[in-house]
Design a protein around this nucleic acid. Structure first.
Lengths: 192, 192
DNA sequence: AAGGATGATATCGACTCGAAACCAGTTTGC
DNA sequence: GCAAACTGGTTTCGAGTCGATATCATCCTT
């Protein structure tokens, strides 16, 4: 069984490697590069605390300087725009433009999703769970901040019925907000 | 069910994305870069027809020029060496050195393998199969040559008992050779 | 023997990334 | 209330990678 498992794990590792390489080349579509696609995807899924250059840098596992360059490139293409914040005038919000959303609809990673949707339905769930626990096993080694949604966040403070607020900022969170990625995410009692 | 499947496929896509990013950063260990690690791994697994710069370029999905630079970098570090071939004096064989094998033993992708081996045994097989068919679905889109082992190759010509030879080159293949990656691989009747 | 194909390498330019310097705005401490 | 420390963001610079092209040597075809 140990041998069998060893065989499987080598194969899994190889397959993931190859899938990674295959998707890598997909991510140069539309004149963008992988980092820029990641950024568009991130901005579409990040909540209002998290659509900033610094949070983006954290998410991408890069530096603020590099993230800034990516942002500039996307802005010059008209896919995102910077919005000055009033509360803290150093800070900037990044927002997808209309054009940006149109481009994101052509996300090349959708191919992967498409391929996944062709799997037998019962296999899909198992696959997702397997990958998820694989990632957990990996993540502890690799450093890198965790990003999760408010719904599973330790800061979430469910006050009244249906309502909830963030224990960190005190803001109340619409249900829409709670399904988005947050920089401040911390694994907590609410989460698994 | 369609909805369920859509959920799963989005999650799978996201997970693969994140695993890819996590492993990417791992592959800068020991002063090498991802392409160089890939090269070491490839050379360790490629058969004697396939340990050449051109085959490497094909495998990595890059150009010969770029592959040549990677080779040079690894050679200057002393991890591989070029061996002039006598049969075709244009051609070069790439071989791992002792040092190269030592370094490869510290392959950062082993972390992934380790994480995979921690999965429940039955899950491992399912996961591998799922990923495999996912890759198949993806590969048809993405172009990129298939690389497989002789044992599943259409060129394999099992002559006598236990013996086999390559129908392309006419060479007889030791059983060791048959488990290695070959550039000339072609999906054939022997394979699945 | 000549011309074309092939394996490999070198060179050049475009591009990306990380490190460090830098600027502006905010907070802290006296 | 002001200076120092801090923080968010941008800019600049250098290293490194990659792909395209040109070049060289060798092989193959006729």
């Amino acid at each position: 069984m140990a041998v069998l498992n060893k065989m499987h794990s080598a194969r899994i590792s190889d397959l993931l490697d190859r899938i990674g390489r295959a998707t890598h080349c997909l991510q140069f579509a539309d004149g963008l590069n992988p980092a820029q696609w990641e950024t568009l995807r991130y901005l579409a899924r990040a909540n209002r605390y998290s659509r900033t250059p610094t949070a983006l840098a954290d998410y991408l596992g890069t530096t603020k300087g590099t993230a800034s360059q990516t942002v500039r490139a996307l802005e010059s293409k008209g896919y995102i725009q910077r919005v000055k914040r009033t509360c803290d005038r150093r800070s900037v919000w990044l927002e997808l433009t209309e054009t940006g959303q149109t481009v994101l609809a052509r996300d090349p990673m959708a191919r992967l999703e498409y391929a996944a949707s062709a799997l037998p339905p019962d296999l899909g769930g198992v696959l997702a769970d397997g990958l998820s626990s694989l990632l957990r096993g990996l993540k502890s080694d690799c450093g890198g901040r965790e990003f999760g949604v408010c719904a599973q966040c330790g800061h979430l403070d469910p006050t009244a019925d249906g309502e909830a607020r963030c224990g960190l900022t005190g803001d109340s969170l619409a249900s829409e907000d709670r399904t988005q990625i947050c920089v401040e995410f911390r694994a907590g009692p609410t989460g698994a």
